[in-house]
Simulated scan of single mutants.
Amino acid sequence: MIIEKIAESKFNDSVFDSKVFGKNFTDHMLVAKYKDGKWDEPKIMPYGALEFTPAAMAFHYGQAIFEGMKAYKNENDEVFIFRPDRNFERFNLSAERLNMPTVPEEIFMEGIQTIVDLDRQWVPKNYGTSLYIRPTMFATEEAISARSSNEFMFVVLLAYAPAYYDKPLSVKIADFYSRSAQGGVGFAKCAGNYAASFYPTQEAQKDGYDQVIWTDSIEHKYIEEAGTMNVMVRIGDKLLTAPTSERILNGVTRDSLLTLAKDSGMDVEIRPVAVQEMYDAYKDGQLKEVFGCGTAVVVNSYNAVGFAEERAPIEILSDEESFASILKGKLRDIQYGLVEDPYGWRVKVGK
């Protein structure tokens, strides 16, 4: 691996005062290029602009994927990445679905460990903050031809990550727009999935909501995801979430929370969750919590759900009563190294 260090770091402690997610990039980035059927030697270099032709095929045919993971620092200045093996597996599943080359483990895993170690001063210690790691790959071949590209670029960016949301959100259940369809790319982290979500979200915001709860694309009877996150519902003392599928992202945070919930003795069901079931539970006073979960946000509770034209307020429970708060606390304690990690989820960076 080629390493070209920045002449002078732009790091300053004031970056940790920022409240903006994903705008404060670290000193370095990793770049590897794919051409003639093989990857070249990856290079870590100072973060900066890359040169592209407007005919780069990603701009025209959408071959672009990404992942998201985080690094944390404990009080002993040890740095850990959370479950990068799962992101590596999912990244290559996305690549295969979009007919892109897979990235070798030594480029993805070793590359991320090396660049995080190099920029470890950017990893904050404050509880609730972290260093966001964004691996991405996109088509770079210069051609306007509706086919798969023959050339790609793999890039890893790092950015300081404050809390993503600082308040509960309201969500409207989608009854027309869909995030994904059976046989499509809903399980992949491809750029187009997110671009397609922006307009329906904007429309929901016009109705006074923050985000959308996506439903199945055929009948809009079953909930699937919320915004760009997996979604969980608590009815009574039962925690429900939809099973992953070709339409639903297999979230790393989702999987972690479900493991913690089951090991904590919570009643968990992974099954289709009907909109009508949620509405009936709301009417009966049994819809206790609805919350989204994902790498960027970790866990975010919803204080209102829109069922068609009816806005259903949901009381935000105390930290001691809330499944969302309990699970978020357990997960973050592992991520920050405050408790033992019985699952082997933390991967230490450097010595």
Rank of each mutant, 00 (worst) to 15 (best):
Val297Arg: 01
Val185Gly: 05
Leu327Ile: 11
Val123Gln: 01
Asp119Thr: 00
Ile81Cys: 01
Glu75Leu: 04
Val171Ala: 12
Glu310Arg: 11
Trp39Leu: 10
Lys351Tyr: 00
Glu321Tyr: 04
Gln113His: 00
Asp333Ser: 14
Ile6Gln: 02
Asp36Cys: 05
Ile107Lys: 06
Val305Gln: 04
Phe138Met: 15
Glu310Trp: 13
Val268Pro: 08
Glu51Arg: 00
Ala146Ile: 09
Gly62Ser: 10
Gly208Ile: 01
Val233Cys: 04
Ile144Val: 14
Asp284Thr: 05
Ala32Asn: 09
Leu131Arg: 09
Leu157Tyr: 10
Lys35Val: 03
Tyr302Asp: 00
Tyr34Trp: 10
Lys206Ser: 09
Leu118Arg: 01
Tyr160Arg: 13
Leu258Met: 13
Gly294Tyr: 13
Tyr199Gly: 04
Tyr199Asn: 12
Ser325Met: 02
Glu110Leu: 03
Gly294Arg: 11
Ile115Asp: 01
Val185Ala: 12
Met45Gln: 12
Pro84Val: 09
Ala304Leu: 05
Asn150Gly: 12
Ser264Glu: 13
Val268Ile: 09
Ser14Arg: 14
Lys70Ala: 01
Ala308Gly: 14
Lys262Gly: 15
Tyr164Pro: 00
Ala226Gln: 00
Asn12Tyr: 12
Phe176Met: 07
Asp207His: 14
Tyr194Gly: 14
Ile213Gln: 02
Lys38Leu: 06
Glu106Leu: 00
Lys348Arg: 00
Asn74Gly: 03
Gln121Val: 07
Ser217Asp: 15
Tyr302Ala: 03
Ile223Asp: 11
Gln182Gly: 09
Ala7Thr: 01
Ile112Leu: 02
Gly294Phe: 10
Ala308Tyr: 15
Ile6Pro: 00
Ala195Lys: 11
Val297Ile: 15
Leu338Tyr: 05
Gly227Lys: 07
Phe291Lys: 15
Pro124Cys: 00
Ala64His: 10
Glu224Trp: 04
Glu269Cys: 05
Gly183Asn: 07
Pro54Lys: 15
Met29Ile: 03
Asp210Arg: 00
Cys293Leu: 07
Gln121Pro: 02
Ala226Trp: 04
Phe176Cys: 03
Asp117Thr: 12
Asp17Val: 09
Thr26Ile: 07
Ile3Tyr: 07
Ala196Asn: 13
Gly294His: 14
Glu321Asn: 05
Leu240Ser: 10
Arg234Lys: 06
Tyr177Leu: 01
Glu4Met: 08
Tyr127Leu: 07
Asn150Gln: 13
Phe323Ser: 02
Phe108Val: 01
Gly128Cys: 07
Gln202Ser: 06
Ile248Thr: 11
Ile326Asp: 03
Ala296Arg: 07
Ser130Val: 06
Asn193Glu: 08
His220Arg: 10
Glu96Gly: 08
